[in-house]
């Protein structure tokens, strides 16, 4: 069994802000049925660009539900500018931490929030830059190298835990390995 904090368990068993939100004027969606988790985030934003209400619908494991619930609690009352700065670590910290294998649940929350903000501002989120490496979960090489750099990931398992990349058919695991090595090599050269 996963080593979930009491806060994760609480937000899973008694999730806050569940369901569609009446009067929502921004929606952000991420994940899919195939991935095994998905989140639809609803925001109600006032004329001062402040989030006055938020709700979610989530398909996924306990930490996906808890991350979604935590996200809505964190962002209520924030301005969009403040919310845009929110990271997946903020969500994880709010819950007292997530198991390493479940960090991607908090990434999902951050991603849905980004999309909802873009949706409110009428910005089309552009095609992701870089080349898709993991076709199962649509993850690009840039996303992988970025996550490796920022979080000090060292193995393909780490990358899968963070981004899901490589967690489907596994065809791209060699490529992920190359990307990790390239980051580590660069890191060494800089030092």
């Amino acid at each position: 069994m996963w080593d979930y904090t009491d806060k994760v368990k609480d937000h899973f068993l008694r999730p806050r802000n569940v369901g569609e939100l009446e009067g929502a004027n921004a929606i952000g969606e991420t994940g899919s049925l195939n991935c095994g988790d998905a989140l639809r985030l609803y925001l109600k934003v006032n004329e001062n660009e402040r989030i006055v209400d938020a709700s979610f619908m989530t398909f996924g494991c306990a930490s996906a539900v808890a991350s979604s619930s935590a996200l809505t609690e964190i962002i209520k009352g924030m301005t969009l500018t403040e919310a845009a700065k929110l990271t997946n670590e903020d969500i994880s910290d709010y819950l007292g931490g997530l198991p390493r294998e479940k960090m991607h649940c908090s990434v999902m929350g951050q991603s849905a929030l980004k999309k909802a903000i873009a949706n409110y501002r009428g910005i089309q989120i552009l095609e992701k830059p870089g080349q898709v490496v993991c076709e199962c979960f649509d993850v690009t090489d840039l996303e992988i190298t970025d996550a490796v750099k920022k979080n000090g990931l060292a193995t393909t398992e780490d990358v899968t835990n963070y981004l899901k990349a490589g967690g489907g058919c596994g065809k791209c695991l060699d490529r992920i390995e190359e990307l990790i090595e390239s980051v580590i090599l660069k890191d060494r050269m800089i030092k």
Binding site: W2, F12, L13, L33, G36, D37, F59, G60, C61, A62, A64, V65
Partner: peptide, 10 residues
């Protein structure tokens, strides 16, 4: 449309 781990934990 639901996920196994969530079912198990409940």
């Amino acid at each position: 449309a639901v996920e196994g781990e969530s079912i198990l934990l409940m």
